[in-house]
Design a protein around this nucleic acid. Structure first.
Length: 494
RNA sequence: CGGGGCGUAGCGCAGUCCGGUAGCGCACCUGGUUUGGGACCAGGGUGUCGCAGGUUCGAAUCCUGUCGCCCCGACCA
């Protein structure tokens, strides 16, 4: 397993300790195998479920409903939208046959040549095509619009290079697909969804972001605009953590989805799509973790509080169990997830290290001394600070502490982000400093040429035109010297 | 697809140069003592040395072929 992660440890020395350790020991993922697909272990999947539940509720608040479409897409669908094909054709897994049979002698099972499919099927890399092929049947009139659907599913992209959590060839995600009667409405939806993502990522994952719009070259294949949330990892590299696309009428036209508008005129439907994936877990891990392992924000931690009694003998063990029962009940009544660990096959020191590795936000420890004094030790994972408090009233303290931890890890990450965003107008300075990481706010003339030049010289890319930074007093493009059109975020990325 | 590297016990590795009984650590199982920061002692078993040929009295080791994986690049959520 560790070898599977060496690429990450080498790329970013800061992470060597935790990334090697925690993914193995913190029980998040088993391994990347079968062309970079990963087995997500129970604890890791519990985090994903939290992400799912929270996001799903937010989607529903905006009127979105869940659907499910098939995993297999006829090859011909993919070729309907020209840019879309070009973007995805290179990384598709293709189903060509539907049967195996016993081969001769030592061949074992072989693909039955008689079972060749008339038309090959593509394992979805994304579902725009198959969904728009269906939307055609759902849409006749402006009264049928908007359609706001989302699906939670897996997709497969046959990447040349995979990285656990960040780019596995199969990954879990949600993809929202909406159809609208007007351009304005679709554009507003695309922007709305990127804000939904940003709110979730900042408030629940405690990962601060730069939100903006992609340059033409970095856009989704087939989109007119791609909105993005960009997070900064601890080594100063950018991680694109979610995107929302305004697709214009490209898919409406490609799949001939027309409707009669209020003026009784035939019009093509306007589209958006938006998605976040298990890459979010990568962002979560890489943003907050320290040398002791994961640090999970309380709002996403599968276990928010772990209680470890230190006892000698069955009698004392029983005494603790009785002592803690009401506290556990109180905490659970507050909606706090509690694990009570009085297992006798692991020593306390092991448990401490293990729960720190897993990122459990609060640990409560009670030993014989505490039992006598009616006190309890409280440790918070984000700062590793310990204090001994009176046992009575501890539930309220823990509840408050969870809120503090959530806030603190966001503030800490936000400070890191702000400290590593630089205004930069000079290309030589940029070239010198970019290797150390960070987001550089640079004037850009808007041309693909300068963008390509930056990438060639420095491996850095234009991450986005940020929404929340000033676009005044742009000056001149740092590469071409021509008047700049935007101030963009340039960074190296994962 | 280009450039590097690796395949030996469940995991991590040594042994390969210089051919001669298949090793180490962790994990696992049993018993005991422990338990306030990853316990200790004693005992236990585990291998198609990636695969296929070749050289040899003898191959993990040398030769040829082959398969797979990892890292760096191009590609990407």
């Amino acid at each position: 397993m560790a070898t599977e992660l060496k690429h990450l440890t080498k790329r970013s020395e800061n992470y060597s300790q935790w990334y090697n350790e925690l993914v193995v020991k913190a029980d998040l993922a088993e391994q990347a195998d079968v062309r970079g697909c990963m087995v997500i272990k129970p604890y890791g999947y519990a985090i994903w479920e939290k992400i799912q539940q929270t996001l799903d509720a937010k989607f529903k608040e905006t009127g979105v409903q869940n659907v499910y479409f098939p995993m297999l897409i006829p090859k011909s669908f993919l070729s309907r939208e020209a840019e879309h094909v070009e973007g995805f054709a290179k990384e598709c897994a293709v189903v060509t046959h539907y049967r195996l049979k016993s081969g001769d002698e030592n061949q074992g099972l072989i693909v039955d040549p008689a079972a060749k499919l008339e038309e090959e099927l593509i394992i979805r890399p994304t579902s725009e095509t198959t969904i728009w092929n269906t939307y055609k049947k759902w849409i006749q009139s402006w009264r049928d619009l908007p359609i706001l659907c989302n699906q939670w599913c897996n997709v497969m992209r046959w990447e040349m290079r995979t990285r656990l959590f960040l780019r596995t060839s199969e990954f879990l995600w949600q993809e929202g697909h909406t159809a609208h009667a007007t351009r304005e409405e679709a554009e507003a939806r695309a922007k709305q969804m990127v804000r939904v993502y940003a709110d979730f990522v900042e408030q629940f994952m405690a990962v601060p972001l730069v939100v903006g719009v992609k340059s033409a070259t970095e856009r989704f294949a087939g989109a007119l605009d791609t909105y993005t949330i960009e997070a900064m990892m601890q080594d100063g590299k950018a991680l694109q953590s979610g995107t929302s696309h305004f697709l214009g009428q490209n898919f409406g036209k490609a799949f001939n989805v027309q409707f009669v508008d209020k003026e009784n005129k035939l019009e093509y439907a306007w589209a958006t799509s938006w998605g976040v994936s298990t890459r979010l877990m990568g962002a979560l891990i890489m943003t907050h973790s320290d040398d002791n392992g994961l640090v999970l924000p309380p709002k996403l931690a599968p276990i928010q509080v772990v209680i470890v009694p230190i006892y000698k003998g069955e009698e004392e063990r029983k005494a603790f169990s009785e002592k803690f029962a009401p506290l556990i009940e109180t905490l659970r009544a507050k909606g706090i997830s509690v694990k009570y660990d009085d297992a006798d096959n692991k020593r306390p020191g092991f448990k401490f290290a293990d729960y720190e590795l897993k990122g459990v936000p609060v640990r409560l420890v009670m030993g014989g001394r505490d039992l006598q004094n009616n006190t309890i030790e409280v440790m918070r994972r984000d700062t590793l600070e310990k204090e001994t408090l009176a046992f009575d009233g501890i539930a309220e303290h823990v509840e408050k502490l969870l809120g503090e931890i959530q806030e603190n890890i966001f503030t800490k990450a936000k400070r890191f982000l702000d400290d590593h965003i630089y205004e930069c107008n000079d290309y030589d300075e940029f070239k010198q400093r970019i290797a150390d990481g960070g987001f550089f706010l640079c004037p850009w003339d808007g041309t693909a040429e300068t963008e390509a030049k930056i990438k060639e010289d420095t491996q850095a890319t234009i991450r986005c035109v940020p929404f929340d930074y000033s676009q005044d007093n742009l000056g001149n493009d740092m590469v071409s010297g021509k008047p700049a059109k935007f101030r963009v975020v340039v960074a190296r990325s994962y």
